[in-house]
Design a binder for these strands. Sequence first.
DNA 1: CGCGACTCCTGCCGGC
DNA 2: TGCCGGCAGGAGTCGC
Length: 270
Amino acid sequence: MPELPEVETSRRGIEPWILHTTINKVVVRDRRLRWPVAKDVERRLQGQIVEAVDRRAKYLLIRTSGDTIILHLGMTGSLFIVDQGAPAGIHDHLDFELDSGKVLRFRDPRRFGSFHLSSKPLAHPLLSKLGPEPLGDEFNGTYLWRKSRGRTVSIKQFIMNAQIVVGVGNIYASESLFLAGINPKRAAGRTARHRYDALADAIKDILSRAIKAGGTTLRDFYGGDGEPGYFKQQLEVYDREGEHCRCCNTIIRSFVQGQRSTYYCKSCQT
DNA sequence: CGCGACTCCTGCCGGC
DNA sequence: TGCCGGCAGGAGTCGC
């Protein structure tokens, strides 16, 4: 489900509800996430105060007076706030009961999400090798171009590689390449320098606009405030196979690349 | 090291 | 209406 804009939307949605609250109790109903939830998380989090709600890549980092929670939403994970005592659904795996009387609840039907605790989250194996944030200054055309030299992989798979740049998932990869006018099949190492300038700008633009719109809701994404994301209305190619390109009227096509669907306009993207 | 295939899991949708 | 195959917003791991 969530790419960077959806995770950021979730972060902003829950932050006002949990910041500076105390975690009275943690309830784990199903430990079978992508990796089994450690048996001591209930004990380690009980009584801790939430001091910050951050994001790194697609991970939410909830810093407490003790450990930091490292939470990944996977494909179908979501976070929301309910009143204490609200009945839990079949896929509601985690509850964080707060001293405010509210509960931060984690739901994840496919259980591709993950939950870890760490005192040094950025040094955690899941985070330590990640590339730069796409909205930061470190990420630009020069960086992408330099990283791409000698790479034979397609440029679409290249920008979805979290060791190159984080946060660009399947929707926004297609959208960014459309905006930059680049054919997704093009080899990363055979893409010119000036195209990477356009691509880095496009990624920043798309992600910023998607965050502003509260993310993209295709089926079942809702931010922490229960609102869907409205960026779907701005999608130019993703999930638009058979429809007309708004730029040149060509029919949008899709094909599979690295086991993921790619959408593009044959005439706008070269 | 780079790359491609595979894998985890449930829900939903379209076609027959 | 009911069943079945295919596909889904992620990403770690393995084999070459």
